[in-house]
Design a protein around this nucleic acid. Structure first.
Lengths: 192, 192
DNA sequence: TCTCAAAACTAACACTTGTTCGTTTCAAAA
DNA sequence: TTTTGAAACGAACAAGTGTTAGTTTTGAGA
C-alpha cells in the first residue's frame, strides 16, 4: 500500500488552491490557510516567499500545462476541424485534471503582482493567438464559415474555460462526455 | 443642455461597480471607495447600510433585469430557434447595458452574505431553468438535435456571460455584431 | 431669518491583514 | 552522541478592515 506522504509544501499548495477557489484570493488570510494546513502562519514562509508567490506558482503551473497540451497536437493534421477538436480536448483535459487550480487560474490571476501580472497576460495572449490561428486557418481553408475570428475564438474560450465548475454541480458527467459535447456543438457551429 | 446632476447615492453605486469590477469586492475598502467618490468613508453609511448592502443592490438589480428581458420574449413564437435567439439577444442586451454591474454580478456574487446569498442562488437557478426549458422544448420539437440539456445550456450561458469583457478589449464590436455572431454560432451548433 | 433633517465630518473601536524577528524543536548525517 | 540545517513556533509590527458614536455643516422650506 503506497501511502503517499505529502510534503508540507505540497499540503500548503493544495490547501491554498482549494481555499482560493472557494473564497477568493483576497478573502483568504495566511492564518486561515495555515490553520487548514495544520501549522502556524509564519511557518508558511519557510516554503513560500509570500502570498503572491503562492498564487504565482498556481497560475503559472496551469499556464505551462496549457502550452504543453497544445504542443501535443499532431502538426501533420491538415483538417482544421480535427485540429481544433484536438486543441479543445487538450484544453479541457488540463482543466479536468486541475479543477481547483484552473479555477484559481481563471478567476484570481488579477491579484498577481507585477512583474508577474504582465508576464501572465502575455502568456495568456500568446495562447489565445494559437487558438485564433487555428480558427483563422480553418476559415481560409474553407473548412469553417468566415466569421469574426476574434469573436469566435473568444466564444470558444468562454465555453471551454467555464467547464471547471461543471464538475461541481454535475458530478455524473465524465470528462469525455463534456469535451465531446462541447466540441461537437462548437465545431458544428463553425462548419461551412 | 441637461447636465445630469448625479446624487451622492448614485455616485457611490457607480463608483462601487467600477471598483468591484476592477479590483474585486474584498480587495476594495470602504475608505478607498469613499475617496474615489470624494467623501469620507463613514458618509457612505448615510446611503447604504453596509458594504454588503451595496453589493446586494448591484447584484439583484442585474438579476431583475435578466428576468425582465426574458419576459419580453414573444410567448406566441413556436419555433425554438427563434425563441432561443430572442432570449440570447435579451440576455446580451442586459450585459451590454450594464458592463460593470454585470461583471460584478457574475464574479462577486459569492461575497453576498446570507440570507441574500441563498436568495441569489435561487434566482439564478430559476433563470437557468427558463433557458434550459427553451433548449429542452426545442429538442423535443425536433428543432434541435438531442443532446445533454444541462450541458448545452451551461455552454450557452458560458458564451453569453463572458461577453461583458469583450467590450473592454474589442471596443470596435457593436452589441448587434456580438449577439448576432454568438447566436448564429450556437444555434447552428444546436440545429438538428 | 429660523428651523430641522439630511448628510457630511473627526475620532475611535475592535479586529484582521501580510510579514518579520528571534528562538526553539526536530530529524537526519557525521 | 554530537552537529547542523530545516522547519516549526510565539510575539510583535505597522497598516488596514468595516463600522459606530457623536458632532458639525449644509441647504431647502416655513
Amino acid at each position: 500500500m503506497a501511502t503517499a506522504t505529502i510534503s508540507t509544501r505540497q499540503n500548503i499548495r493544495l490547501t491554498a488552491q482549494r481555499l482560493f477557489r472557494e473564497r477568493g484570493y483576497s478573502a483568504v488570510g495566511m492564518r486561515e490557510l495555515a490553520k487548514e494546513v495544520g501549522i502556524e502562519a509564519p511557518s508558511i514562509y519557510n516554503h513560500y516567499k509570500s502570498k503572491d508567490d503562492l498564487l504565482r506558482e498556481i497560475c503559472f503551473d496551469i499556464a505551462d500545462q496549457f502550452f504543453e497540451a497544445f504542443k501535443a497536437i499532431d502538426p501533420e493534421e491538415k483538417a482544421a476541424g480535427k485540429k481544433l477538436r484536438s486543441a479543445i480536448k487538450g484544453h479541457i483535459h488540463v482543466i479536468a485534471g486541475n479543477l481547483e487550480a484552473s479555477s484559481v487560474f481563471f478567476n484570481e490571476w488579477m491579484f498577481l503582482e507585477e512583474p508577474h501580472l504582465a508576464q501572465f497576460k502575455k502568456l495568456r495572449h500568446e495562447y489565445e493567438l494559437k487558438f485564433r490561428d487555428l480558427v483563422d486557418k480553418g476559415m481560409k481553408r474553407g473548412d469553417f464559415k468566415t466569421m469574426n475570428t476574434k469573436l469566435v475564438t473568444f466564444t470558444i474560450f468562454s465555453a471551454l474555460n467555464a467547464t471547471y465548475d461543471l464538475y461541481r454541480t454535475n458530478e455524473k458527467l465524465t470528462e469525455d462526455e463534456i469535451s465531446e459535447n462541447i466540441a461537437n456543438l462548437l465545431l458544428k457551429g463553425l462548419k461551412n
